[in-house]
Amino acid sequence: MIEIVKALFDPDNEFLRLAFIVGTLSAFSFGIIGTYVVTRRISYLAGAISHCVFGGIGAALYVQKKIGIEWFDPMYGAVISAVLAAAIIGLVSLYAKQREDTVIGALWATGMAIGLLFIDLTPGYFDITSYLFGDILLISPNDIKLVLLLDIIVIVLTVYFYNKLQAICFDDEFARLRGIHSDIYYILLLCLTALTVVLLVRVVGIVMVIALLTLPAAVAGQFAKKLWQMMILAVIVCIVFIWSGLGLSYIYELSSGPTIIVIAGSVYLAVAAGARLFKNN
């Protein structure tokens, strides 16, 4: 514990400070959006979106290195592909009444495959594991601004549309009958999910980002009585996961992404099992 505090104040550990700051800030978006993803039961869609992000990253690298548009950072590609995937997946799940899961599964894998093909075509060597599993060394000071911006957007929208979003997540059909354009809010929710996913790709990577989105909310859901309580609790739980994961990974020289996810997964399973035992008694 003291070791990690010392490390945080070590002038040589700029990357660790950045990881803690970005991790803490992104926990706000993660807790709030994660709560919606869990209660609206769209974690499968969120998983597909996060894997499509890899397609955008691959395409951006290709544009940057092969075509030579230097300013086109992989992050831009990630944002574009995430929002595009959110829109397509949202429309598919709204209008393709049958085989929705098949279509989503196809997008999931195809997005990923497109990314890999683009990387094949791009000259030079890229360590794709940092995108797949996260690498806190990739976090830049610029990310703080991006995460802050997303936090503000997410919090403002959530506070303003709280009642409507709650009604849509609870009973979409009834919300529609109250004149709410639930399709639009649904797509909005998916787009926010997409942006949230992109920002945390650096910390935990594409493959595991979905776990950090849903597990804190799932833990919070075991205790919360109201939706906003679940959100606040999910933010706190997410911060605890990220801090403990980053700390342990630093001390034991492990990869930070998997460490965070193993902690999140264990806590969730323990809480879920505990809740079951408690209810049975």
């Binding site: 209660t39 039961r41 009642n163 409507k164 709650q166 009604a167 997540c169 609870f170 009973d171 009834f174 919300a175 109250r178 004149g179 709410i180 859901g221 919360a224 009585k225 109201k226 939706l227 309580q229 679940m230």
Partner: peptide
């Protein structure tokens, strides 16, 4: 969804939306 965290009053209030 029976695990959705809402109170009885929250549910009834949804009838006032729109």
């Amino acid at each position: 969804d029976l695990h959705f965290p809402v109170t009885v009053l929250d549910v009834v209030l949804m009838g006032r939306l729109g």
